[in-house]
Design a protein around this nucleic acid. Structure first.
Length: 105
DNA sequence: ATGTTGACATTGA
DNA sequence: TTCAATGCCAACA
């Protein structure tokens, strides 16, 4: 592919449907490197100037690790809630209900 | 050019 | 079960 690792990440993230979330591991695994989850997060950080729904990407535990990069932990959670995403008492996204697979749909 | 860091995940002990 | 170490790719010092 002509696209770099970052571009591929952005492409996948851009395909995340509204009200749905995915994890770094799933994206990385979809790109061919399941352990490249770190690079995936990096791509999102580099995409801060792009229209990517980075708030739909959470870690394997469903925790909003990127919320701190949004400028506030409540900002990200609020956006997800606005999309209909549910959270548990721990403030983590219910992956069992909203987990979206790049290769799934 | 080399080493460290970074929004993570997985495996081994 | 929990903790530590390793892998991945790119950017920064």
């Amino acid at each position: 592919m002509d696209a770099d690792f970052f571009d591929r990440v952005w492409e996948v993230v851009d395909r995340i449907p509204r009200g749905r979330v995915t994890t770094y591991g799933h994206i990385a695994g979809y790109l061919g490197s399941r352990s490249a989850a770190r690079t995936v997060g990096w791509a999102l950080g580099a995409a801060k100037n792009t229209p990517l729904p980075c708030h739909r990407v959470v870690n394997r535990h469903g925790a909003l690790t990127a919320a701190q990069r949004f400028g506030g932990p409540h900002v990200m959670s609020d956006m997800l809630r606005n999309e209909g995403v549910e959270f548990d008492d721990e403030g983590c996204v219910r992956l069992d209900l909203h987990l979206w697979d790049p290769a799934g749909e």
